[in-house]
Design a protein around this nucleic acid. Structure first.
Length: 612
DNA sequence: CTAGGGTTAG
């Protein structure tokens, strides 16, 4: 009783930074005295219990230094104290310190128990270090702690996250004589977190089959697994099963179900269940905002403002999605307003958020602000570099993108596939052929990265621009997968530019197989026929094009003017301001002609579309 | 003093 009272007093009133509560100090000293004076100790259960509880309180409040100081001052420490330190460090993601503590403990010949080993395994998982995990596994065997549910479960978890395959985790799972819901959930999560949703679903099905008692955790991870497979029918089944098992109103479960419908693209279902939810938290809103961002960005912004009006305060997850929505819509002043909100909440140091800001400013045409954000960042990850390079590339700043890439490599950051894609596309857009081809070589020989469809597309474009069209075609032939639209499109442009009618016809044919209604392809193909003087073929194509012209939905553009978004299409005569627009256009065209611009034949595409 | 679930970035 007294311990409890003291403890609460200590934790409530005396948790000051850099100061060990006097009451603890006294009791620690009383141990030393009591052993000499043999008077009854101040605290019945022993001071280490109190100190250990205090260590936990420190960690709960994130006061690592204080916890450590108290630990260091303790005259004697038992397993529980050591374990509290290890668990405390891991709970704050200080996995290395946790591991050091564990090693230190073993060196001090303190005998670890099941609690210790499961905490140590959590540190191994956090460090993604298989070796350490295996070491603990060996120790567990030696100490006869294999068979403890906690040890086995965390061992499974460590193996699932540290190993390249699920084999080790499965082995532990199968060897377990007794399994509980946590064991099953951990296995499902292991598959799901490595992107194998099907594997996760398989285990979940087995779990249902063996009639293991279900809890909300098993359902939310199963829903997550299902979301990544795209199996809508299964998703609805699991949703129904969750309702049947009485977890259909559990908030995390509903949040993941909401996320699942969003990922399936079932926004009306997502919206329906969102409104049916009686309890919502910030994650609920964030899930919906993120879901809409991918498919309907402007609605995403509406949901965001509704969220704020209902009294929820956005966090960095919210802002990241909202920023992406602004980027998709290219609404600069809206993005700037949200940026102000980010700064006022002190979230501008968040890495993911800064990355999203770089992207937003770049997509809104404000590359200098992207640059400002980039140079003001104290730490950067691969996404940071990539976003900046993509921004440069989109603005035609190939040289800047290349320089940024080199700077990144010089700083010791290892580029991945997407960084290469960014720099290669920047090179191809800016016509930096030699640089681009050099990076392509380096990617394969120095970094062992296998190019994907998009990278091949960039390289075909680079080779094509350089006039090495035959090589580009050979590259396409050597690809380990079926070439897609962008590849044939790049080849076709190269053929047109370098006058290779036969290869051009082949490319156009493949392109039309993949997408029959592409007007641009017909235009290019007909131009090839025209250049060859094959007017019969030319006329035939033009006839086809006239027939399909009306079916094609016009490409829509939009700009933000004085906080309002105005959109328009080719030949737009709507709206009160179009007369000014056309006046400016005429002026621009006049200037261009004066500067020596020659009308390109590709503009014929407009003739077809308006039927003029 | 111990394990398991949800949202985010190119």
């Amino acid at each position: 009783m007294r311990t409890k009272k003291l403890l609460s007093a200590a934790t409530t009133f005396r948790l000051h930074k850099n100061k060990i509560p006097p009451i603890i100090k006294e009791s620690l000293q009383s141990v030393k005295k009591s052993s000499v004076q043999s008077s009854p100790p101040l605290i019945p259960k022993g001071p280490s219990v109190l100190a250990t509880s205090l260590i936990n309180s420190y960690f709960e409040k994130g006061l690592i230094k204080e916890a450590r100081m108290l630990f260091d001052e303790m005259p004697e420490r038992d397993v529980v104290t050591w374990t509290a330190m290890i668990a405390g460090y891991t709970s704050l993601n200080y996995h290395t310190q946790a591991w050091v503590m564990f090693v230190e403990m073993v060196r001090n010949e303190v005998n670890p128990n099941a609690f210790t080993l499961s905490s140590a395994l959590k540190a191994c998982k956090g460090m993604k270090c298989l070796m350490h995990g295996a070491l603990v596994h060996g120790l567990a065997k030696k100490k006869g702690l294999e068979g403890s549910m906690y040890v086995d479960n965390s061992l499974m978890d460590a193996y699932a996250t540290c190993c390249v395959s699920m084999d080790n985790a499965c082995m532990v799972f199968e060897d377990m004589k007794v399994k509980n819901a946590v064991s099953w959930t951990t296995l499902i999560a292991g598959y799901t977190h490595r992107g194998d949703g099907h594997g996760g679903l398989r285990v979940f099905r087995q779990m249902l089959f063996e009639e293991v008692e279900m809890n909300p955790y098993s359902f939310s991870i199963a829903v997550r697994a299902c979301a990544s497979t795209g199996l809508v029918v299964f998703g609805k089944l699991i949703h129904a099963a969750a309702t049947k098992h009485g977890v259909g109103s559990n908030l995390p479960v509903m949040n993941s179900i909401l996320d699942m419908y969003c990922r399936f693209g079932c926004l009306s279902e997502a919206n329906h269940y969102f409104h049916e939810m009686t309890e919502k938290d910030l994650i609920t809103w964030n899930t919906l905002i993120a879901g809409y961002e991918r498919l309907d960005s402007s609605e995403s912004l509406n949901i965001f403002s509704k969220m704020e009006s209902e009294g929820f305060s956005p966090n960095c997850f919210t802002f990241t999605s909202v920023m992406a929505a602004c980027a998709n819509l290219a609404v600069l002043s809206c993005g700037q307003q949200v940026h102000a909100g980010i700064i006022s909440r002190g979230l501008d140091g968040n890495l993911a958020l800064a990355n999203a800001l770089i992207d937003m400013y770049a997509k809104c045409g404000n590359i200098s602000d992207s640059q400002k954000i980039f140079s003001g960042m104290s730490d950067r990850d691969l996404v940071t570099w990539t976003s900046m390079m993509i921004g440069y590339g989109a603005h035609g700043y190939g040289k800047e993108a290349v320089e940024l890439f080199d700077e990144m490599v010089k700083l010791g950051v290892r580029p991945d596939k997407i960084v290469f894609m960014a720099v290669l596309s920047a090179c191809s857009h800016a016509g930096l052929m030699d640089e681009g081809l050099r990076y392509f070589e380096s990617m394969m020989s120095d970094y062992n990265i296998n190019p994907n469809q998009e990278i091949y597309g960039c390289v075909v474009d680079l080779l094509g621009r350089a006039g090495r069209v035959k090589e580009a075609y050979e590259l396409i032939e050597s690809m380990p997968f079926k070439p897609g639209e962008s590849i044939w499109g790049a080849l076709l442009s190269a053929c047109k530019a370098h006058k290779l009618p036969n290869l051009g016809k082949l490319a156009a044919g493949r392109l039309l197989d993949l997408r029959p209604n592409m007007m641009g392809t017909y235009v290019m193909l007909s131009n090839i026929y025209a250049a060859e003087g094959k007017w019969g073929e030319f006329a035939k194509l033009r006839k086809i094009m006239r027939g399909m012209g009306s079916k094609k939905e016009a490409g829509r553009s939009w700009i933000e003017v004085r906080n309002q978004v105005r959109s328009f299409v080719v030949g737009d005569k709507m709206g009160s301001h179009t007369q000014y627009v056309y006046k400016i256009l005429d002026l621009l065209i006049k200037h261009m002609k004066e500067a020596g611009y020659v009308h390109d034949i590709d503009c014929l595409i407009h003739d077809i579309e308006d039927g003029t």
